[in-house]
Simulated assay, not measured.
Amino acid sequence: MTTDVAARLDALESRLRRLEDEREILQLITAYGPLVDAGRADEVAALWTEDGVYDIDEVFLGDQEAIHAMVLSRGHQRWIAGGCSHFLGPAHVTVDGDEAVAVCESLMVTHGDDGFVVRRATANHWQLRRTPAGWRVTVRTSRVLDGRAESPALLAAGALGERP
């Protein structure tokens, strides 16, 4: 094989690996909404590394066990029983070797006596790592989009492939 063909093959393999990584990360992120709305605590927690963090405005979940407990909590189970959807928009993913950053916006839609309402719109910044089991979340930071400066800063950082 000539050097030119070998170089082209290496470049092609590298591009394919990046696309496969991006797709796996997108699959992981988009699984969150359906799994959390179905109350699948084991599967939701497994999206994170064991020491993975989910930092939400009013709640800090410091590991898989805490994330698992949140899904099974009385409050979250009430959302499920009443009807809710955690809808995550398309994510922008930046892969850098075995680390990645992603960003997306999400809506939490709930059902009540007056029909469906958007309960919150949120900026989501994801930090991920390739593990032997595949890509997993190391840190997810979520801030409500209510005019505070922190929320759009998270969006910009993620879109630029940066950590906040």
Rank of each mutant, 00 (worst) to 15 (best):
D113P: 14
A81N: 09
R129P: 00
L107V: 04
A31C: 10
A46R: 00
L145W: 04
G75S: 14
E58P: 03
S142Y: 06
R129K: 12
V36M: 11
G62P: 13
G52N: 01
G52R: 00
A123S: 14
Q77H: 09
M108L: 15
A45K: 00
R40K: 14
A100H: 03
E20I: 06
W48D: 00
A81S: 13
G39V: 10
A133L: 14
V71S: 06
T49D: 01
A69C: 09
L145F: 08
W79C: 07
L88H: 04
G115L: 11
H111K: 11
A91Y: 07
A46P: 02
L47T: 04
G112K: 07
E24Y: 05
G97L: 13
Y32N: 10
G112A: 10
R18F: 08
V93R: 03
A81Q: 11
R136L: 06
G62R: 09
T141S: 08
G134E: 11
F116V: 01
A66F: 01
F60V: 13
R129T: 01
G112R: 07
T30I: 05
T122E: 06
R40L: 13
Q27W: 03
R17M: 10
H111E: 12
V109S: 09
V53L: 14
Q77G: 12
S106Y: 02
A66N: 03
T122F: 04
A121N: 07
W135P: 00
G33Q: 09
V36Y: 05
W79R: 13
V144F: 05
P132I: 01
D51E: 13
D42G: 07
Q27L: 08
T110N: 12
P90S: 11
R136M: 07
A133G: 10
V44Q: 06
G115R: 09
N124R: 08
R140Y: 06
V95C: 13
L26F: 03
G112P: 06
E50W: 06
A100R: 02
V36T: 15
F60L: 15
G62A: 14
L128P: 02
G39H: 09
L35T: 01
